[in-house]
Amino acid sequence: MKILTTILILSTLSFAAIGSAHEADCPYCKIKVVQNTKEQDNEVVLKVGNKRIEYRCLYCVIKDQGRYKGDLVVYAPSEKVGEPVILKRTEGKWTGPKDAVYLNTFKAHKDCAALSRAFTTKEAFAKYAKAHGQTEAKPLTLEQFITAITKPAKAAS
């Protein structure tokens, strides 16, 4: 029975849609989570234990991570629909794909879903930043992204 159950769990995790059925507010910034569209993924999904929680942006996840004790997996929408950048926090240490870079230029949370995002490559970052008027933005590594968010003087409302 254990083998059967394991197969059932694995198959469920593999094929289930990542995301929530219900339009929820972001647990951190309390603004409505922007839903995925055919052109672009927007929902950031955090998996912890048996829970899958939606956030509005990657910044909100990093800011809210302290409430979770266990290991985390975060599915961050990228420039490719259906291909999120997958980040992990294992025993407190964050890791992600080596080529991934991050944008974090929003000034107010009404813009966080658009301007706190992950990209699979620098080229994809540059294309997105240009299209969204963020021509001065620098692509951040995961470490830079997390440091920028967690340092005390971060100016974001």
Binding site: I9, T12, A17
Partner: peptide, 10 residues
Amino acid sequence: EWAQLNNGTP
């Protein structure tokens, strides 16, 4: 076992 299942969005 039941708690670990998740069928996502109906």
